[in-house]
Amino acid sequence: MTPTHDSHGQHRILVIDDEAAIRRFLHAALSSEEFSLHEAESGHGGLSAAAAFRPDVILLDLGLPDMDGIEVIRRIREWSDVPVIVLSVREQEDDKVAALDAGADDYLTKPFGVGELLARIRAALRRTLKHADEPVFRSDELMVDLTLRHVYTDETEIQLTPTEYDLLRLFITHAGKVLTHSQILKQIWGVAYQEQSQVLRVTISNLRKKIERDPSRPRHITTEPGVGYRLKIQDCG
């Protein structure tokens, strides 16, 4: 599905949150040339608005009064791939994982800054817009040629094991998006490994040693504690 634009070329954002103060703040912060906003204050209201308004991005609060936020994501995913960014509080790591596993694209921990929110919204929009089969991925000193399976840092080719390469390619195809442990394990090692998180830790650690300048301060593959990993896209200058 490609994002739709209204006559002014704005991206449409649907906010589903029961807190009036937060809707008011988001409305003020996001309404602009770039975005037009629609608001819903309940899960059911959000679901019908998602169908009627056809948003390009949905901002979804997990703590809705009438319906579990995870359920809202599942129902949206039955018919739409629209990016869903979950808004939740700090103590809900398990909920974040459940939301991502149910098909959410990203999450933001309340309270968040507008800069952070805009960056997530734009990243989500970029992912839906971008060409599915771009052959070369670049981020800072990291360059991956996906057709030839070559990986370079600072113009020097590095050797990855097949598993490390598969893992890196998975991150690249979901660049900027959080992947939960179980999503990665299922994709790379198969369903049987879904609980074997040490396999993932070791592979991530090895991959970082090869592609990060300082593996203890990773810039490309960052850890979201308790949730998963994210491949950050750095400016290529």
């Binding site: 790591e93 398990d94 998180s197 040490q198 830790r201 070791v202 991530i204 650690s205 593996p215 203890s216 301060r217 990773p218 960052t222 850890t223 504690p225 308790g226």
Partner: peptide, 17 residues
Amino acid sequence: LKVEPCDIQELVGCALA
């Protein structure tokens, strides 16, 4: 506690980040 086998380098990295 949600205990999982963790990479200590990763732990330090997260705190520093």
